[in-house]
Design a protein around this nucleic acid. Structure first.
Lengths: 352, 352
DNA sequence: CTTAGCACTCAGATGGTTAGAGTGCTAAAA
DNA sequence: TTTTAGCACTCTAACCATCTGAGTGCTAAG
């Protein structure tokens, strides 16, 4: 695909205009608004070339040109230069953004909403994966009656809790003893190990604690599941502002996709590999069979390590330049906050 | 408002038909399909009366009749008899529904999705309020480096956790001692008391624990906030299936309302007072300024006490009879599960 | 290689006509 | 007095024809 300078300029002009207005772009429009110093006729010739290469299309004979997915791809890969300039975004905000979620869940929720607010599309954040978490601590708290609260803590700081009712009364003392026993038995085990060992123990141990073990086992399973599932979506309603979603069929498909968190997750996770920001355009993505939708994904880190992904979903006709900046900005912001929070006292982060 | 038997039958016929088809109902249609033994002309006269009373309207001169909000109100209050018959719903399901969420959050999420699935509209569940929770237990777990996990447990079994980084290293031993100290100090205090006392102590105590106290204080504040906020919405996309939401403006307003959880919460909470099932039609509700939307709300209980609300949001033209049954069914189901879960060993619930 | 000129195409707007559904009213029938 | 048949009237939605304008593609001249 060899485009000379002028071809590139025309392609860029068409895509920029189309992103702006949403209407097919005609040759005379380009010739007038962009000072390329050539007549509409020449522009037409170039457009015809670009169409031949599959970068533009025609809705119908007498309409202007519209970018294809391939066109957007080229646009993003070669034409726009993204300024990694957080200042530009910061200055758009009346006051510096603050995320202050008390716990991680709140923080993720807020981050997804921030993405939505800044981009005017829909924000998505996938909670940190906890791949190598191991056993840290268990606690049984006796509440009124025979209720016992199981609190299961992993080395990564993930807490799974579960309220159960026992068939017989156990004192707090007995519970503590049993917790201490488990702490000792399971120290440093991985989640998989824990499950294995608990199963073994359940065949030997006293009946009184059987139920506790059983439930601890379940809690350990749920740690994994819970973590896997968490996808935060912010500003889903914003996407309705875009005229491209006037079509009910499309809209329904999109919202169903939002509800199918598992698919979204797989989609977002593909971006984890690389550290930069990735853009998936329209049909490019096999997991998200949504025509007309693009996705801008980035990652966030804590303590120098990539631990999760976040991004923006919008129509293919998206303000890519701005959105890429927004994702970049938010990913840095979130990374900084997480690092501050987790590592205070260990590492000094001073990139404010 | 005195309607004789025949008037009522006509009103019911009109509303039933309209709910079914979504199209304005004409006099001849009623006369034919419902065996009232009168001619269309008579039906027309009756319809005119009903219109005068504000129970029906006219989209335009030559169209059939459509119920007004007032009409629906009358319909629900006086015309439909709801069979509290869970069998009818159960038999609609291929297999009995099961909710099996590991923790409460999962359970609520599943319940909202169940509501949506059964009703074909959108399900909403408000998490149990924890009005009178008091202090139960605190735990500090040392993770790697200077990270400490604070686990704050209330008497109701709500767990708030928070990961912090300290400026200096404290041993697990020291942490335990401090936790024991707090356990003793704060035993049986209400949340408000705790905050009060922590603030007092923070002026006296050793600097080393100051940070811990501070964060414990914050955690106690967040328990409250976290609880307040949780609204689970299931099947929001389902509402798109209804033709009445083809109007983008309406749709946007609705989805924005879904995102404004706080408002939803206030709306749902109004239903807590009474135990039965309530229906809010269209404009009847001041908090939810949505024309064209109705809400069917119920409550759920644990151990005989009402602890939360749940409901279905759909268009005013809603299958009320079915939805009321669905809400009733789900509320019983959820109540039973919660009771089993919380109270196992204390009370025997055997209404399966 | 560029550009002016021109015929051609097609979507979308405009407007008039028609068919059909359903009403309200009146006067006759029960 | 109530019900009903009959009929004129109203309004929507669908259909069709027409028109306009935007924008193209092609050709031939610059």
């Amino acid at each position: 695909m060899e485009l000379d300078e002028r071809d590139k300029k025309v392609l860029q002009a068409v895509i920029d205009s189309y992103i702006q207005t949403g209407a097919p772009v005609g040759s005379s429009f380009i010739s007038e608004k962009f000072s390329l110093g050539v007549s509409p006729a020449t522009i037409r010739n170039i457009m015809a070339e670009l169409e031949e290469m599959g970068l533009l299309t025609h809705p119908h004979t007498s309409a202007g040109r519209v970018p294809t997915d391939k066109g957007y791809r080229y646009y993003i890969d070669s034409l726009i230069s993204i300024e990694r300039n957080t200042d530009e975004i910061s200055s758009q905000l009346q006051r510096p953004v603050e995320l202050h979620g008390g716990d991680i869940e709140d923080l993720m929720e807020e981050a997804s909403q921030l993405l939505a607010r800044l981009s005017r599309y829909t924000g998505v954040v996938v909670a940190p994966a906890e791949p190598e978490s191991s056993y840290k601590h268990i606690e049984f708290v006796r509440l009124r009656g025979r209720q016992v609260l199981i609190i299961f803590v992993t080395s990564g700081g993930v807490v799974q809790n579960k309220l159960i009712g026992l068939d017989e009364t156990l004192s707090q003392h007995e519970l503590n003893a049993f917790a201490a026993y488990l702490d000792q038995e399971l120290e440093h085990s991985t989640l998989a190990d824990i499950r294995q060992r608990l199963l073994e123990r359940m065949h030997e141990d006293r009946a009184a604690f059987l139920r506790l073990m059983e439930e601890t086992y379940r809690a350990s399973v749920e740690v994994r599941e819970k973590d896997k599932e968490k996808v935060y979506i912010g500003g889903a309603s914003q996407i309705l502002e875009n005229p491209e979603f006037a079509d009910m069929e499309k809209l329904r498909a999109l919202f169903r996709a939002f509800e199918d968190k598992y698919k979204l997750l797989r989609l977002l996770d593909r971006a984890v590999a690389a550290e930069g920001i990735k853009v998936f355009i329209g049909s490019e993505n096999p997991f998200f069979e949504m025509q007309g939708c693009s996705l801008v994904v980035g990652t966030y880190k804590a303590g120098g390590e990539v631990i999760g992904t976040l991004g923006v979903i919008g129509p293919t006709r998206m303000q890519y330049r701005q959105v890429i900046q927004v994702v970049d900005y938010t990913s840095r912001l979130l990374s900084r906050l997480l690092s501050e929070r987790y590592q205070r006292g260990m590492i000094d982060y001073d990139e404010r």
